[in-house]
Every structure is written in structure tokens, then in C-alpha cells.
Design a protein around this nucleic acid. Structure first.
Lengths: 199, 199
DNA sequence: CCATAATGTGAATTTAAATTCACATTACAT
DNA sequence: ATGTAATGTGAATTTAAATTCACATTATGG
């Protein structure tokens, strides 16, 4: 028997597999992100994954690129768009927080040993992307400082790292089950406090 | 053959095994923290681990307690000691940063799925401990605020979360290989900036 | 139409890690 | 002294996951 699934081009299958992997990541975390789980979520056989990807590393690589494009790209577009620096920073903050609220698997993957200790290329790609992200936020903060919206004395880079740390730490506490308050409420409080700190 | 290793009491062996596990964690991360690696580092057979622990979860549990006692306890003792709130916060910051610099495996373990998705008891224990940690730092910040050393308007809890996020994010970037600057220099810059923000 | 390359599958195979087992040694209580 | 419970080991066994394989189906260019 070899006929349960419609045949589709590898382009389409790759896309489906990545989306399925993304699903699994959200539901079962990095640890549950197995070939079998991805195949099940995509509604196909294990072996078929290997028709369209070289192996698990290859799937992981594509997943990471997908996340980087779909997600990290959003901050860049907000930063490049119109609005005051503080409005931009606020939008970046809440969109990132919302993302984490919906899919804590993303930061888990980004900061997992699966990535760092796995394929070097993937780790490097992510490190570079994260570097861009930090720079993007630094630039927004520097602009706010220059326009007098934020404190003149703050150093953009370190403030950006603090900003991202705040988001990251929330994500991690959330996954740990140690975040008692509502995720959204927590985000609002953190933002209000951060805004007070920087201006 | 059953005679390569001196016999010792289980109390001593448990201690040795935990220290060995701690070593492995530092060198190979959570992923490399296998029974075989621990046994090798402790200079004993795999099977002997099972003489002194119920299984890997049991080892992990003891390791987490060890870390919580040895490490997280330090912040508490600094907080409880003498000095101004800002001096205390500074000491906590740099001791935590130094710790991470020497053993990035610690935050890796604390925030790993190995812990969160493994034995529920371990995850809960850690969540509770982390909660205490947040409270300890909140209290120092609140004291600083009250004494006029820090801004009156900042909310202690959210500022504490931001403080810890800054540390955590540094640790994660470091493990990713994306932290370009020297670890110590980075810590000093972050601290200088944070201090500017809160007062 | 039809050859064939691409797509798809269930059933091995491989690999790595946790765990158990059967047996060897030794501390130590009596 | 001695027997027995605790400690120690190498060699299975188990388990779970990635990967490969032999064979089935089907789209498609000619």
C-alpha cells in the first residue's frame, strides 16, 4: 500500500512540513519536536519527510528561517514604519509579547541546545539574526533619545538588551509555570514600568 | 571483575555524583548530561549511579536542589546582609553574572525543557525558588526606592523582573555565541546603564 | 500512450540513552 | 570469624528516535 496521500510538489510539501513542525513546537516544545510528531501533524508518513528534507537538521534549519522571516521581520517593519520611537517600541513590545503568549515554543527553540549544540550553520544564522534584532531596537531607542522622548543618557545598545531580556525572561517564566499573573496584564505592567525607567 | 573502586557510603557517593553531574553540565550542557557522562566524570560505572539514585530524574532533582542551595542562596544572603540597596543590587548582579560566565550550564538547566517537561516536582520546586528570588530582589529595590536611592515611581516587582531578564538574556546570548564583547565588559555596561535607568 | 522520475508508504535498521541483571567484592554487626 | 547487606561492575535489555529500504503509485514530458 502506497496510496493514502495525494501527491504534491516538494515545494508545497516543504511548506506543509514546516507549518506542521511549527504546530508541534507550540504544542509539545522542542523536546516533542520529533520526526514522527511532525509527520503525524502534517498527516503523512515519517519516510515522506525524508523525501523533502535531508534530515531533521534540515527541517530545523527551515523552521528557524521561517520563524526568523515571519516573526523577527515584524519588528523590523515596525521600526522602519512611521510613528514616534516610543510608539514603535511599544508596538514591538506588545507584538513580541503576544507572540510569546500564543507560542512560547518560539523562544524555547531559539534558545534551545537543540539549536546551539546542533548544526553550526543554524546556530550562526540565529546569532546573526538576533544581532540584527538588537541593532534594530537600539536604533529605535537611540532615535527616541535624540528626539528627547527618552533619557539622553541611556546607552541604546544596553537598553535594547534590557528590553529584550525583559521579554525573554517573561517567556521563560511562563513556560516554567512560575508566572502567576495573567500574561497580558504582566506585559502591560512591565511595559508601564519600563517606560517610566527610560524617560 | 567487580573491584576497581573503593567502596564508600551512599551519602558520600551521592555527593560525588552530584558534583560530577555539575561538572558535566558545565562542560557539555543539558544535552550532554547523560548517565554515562556523569558516571565517567565521577569515575564509576553507569550501574553504580543506580545504586545511589532512583534514576536520572532523581539525579536531576538533587542537582537542581544543589544549584538552588549553593547559588540562589547567595543572593538571599547578600540581600539579608549589610549595605545600601544599590550596593546590594550591584553585588547580586555581578555575582550572578560571574556565575553565568563560569558556568552557563546553570541557567541552561534551570530553563531547559529537560526540567520543565520532566518530573513535575522538580519543575514546581524551581518555579517556587525562582519566585523567592524575584521577591528577594523586589524587596531590595523597594528598599532603595523608599530610601530615595532609586526612583520613587518604579514598581519593585517589574523592575526586579527586568533586572533578572537582563542577566538571563546575557546568559542566553552568551551560550548562543552571539555575545561579541567580553562577558565582564558587557556586564559592566549593562549595570551602568541599568543604574542610570533606575535612579 | 507510456516510460520514468517523483512522490508516497510500512517495515526494517541504526543509534544512543536509560535501565536492569547476574554476579563479584567488601564493610561491619554480631 | 562470619554471614549478610551494601557497594560495585560489565554485559544485557529496553526504549525512543532518526534514518534507510524495498516496493507502490502517479504525474508528466515526449
Amino acid at each position: 500500500m502506497g496510496s493514502c496521500l495525494e501527491k504534491k510538489s516538494t515545494d508545497i510539501r516543504r511548506e506543509e512540513i514546516i507549518r506542521a513542525a511549527f504546530e508541534v513546537l507550540g504544542e509539545k516544545g522542542v523536546r516533542g519536536l520529533t520526526i514522527a510528531a511532525i509527520a503525524e501533524s502534517a498527516g503523512m508518513s515519517n519516510a515522506n519527510i525524508y523525501r523533502h528534507f535531508g534530515g531533521k537538521d534540515d527541517v530545523l534549519s527551515a523552521l528557524v528561517q521561517f520563524i526568523a522571516e515571519e516573526i523577527m521581520g515584524k519588528a523590523s517593519s515596525i521600526a522602519a514604519g512611521s510613528g514616534t520611537p516610543s510608539a514603535k517600541l511599544e508596538r514591538i513590545f506588545f507584538s513580541h509579547m503576544a507572540l510569546i503568549g500564543e507560542n512560547p515554543g518560539i523562544p524555547r527553540l531559539v534558545f534551545s541546545e537543540e539549536i546551539h549544540l546542533g548544526d553550526r550553520k543554524i546556530a550562526d544564522f540565529l546569532a546573526v539574526r538576533l544581532g540584527y534584532y538588537v541593532e534594530t531596537i537600539s536604533a529605535v531607542i537611540a532615535a527616541g533619545s535624540a528626539e528627547g522622548e527618552f533619557l539622553k543618557e541611556l546607552s541604546p545598545r544596553e537598553t535594547a538588551l534590557t528590553f529584550l531580556g525583559m521579554i525573554q525572561f517573561t517567556a521563560l517564566r511562563r513556560v516554567m509555570g512560575g508566572a502567576s499573573a495573567e500574561h497580558v496584564t504582566e506585559a502591560e505592567r512591565l511595559w508601564a514600568n519600563f517606560l517610566r525607567l527610560i524617560r
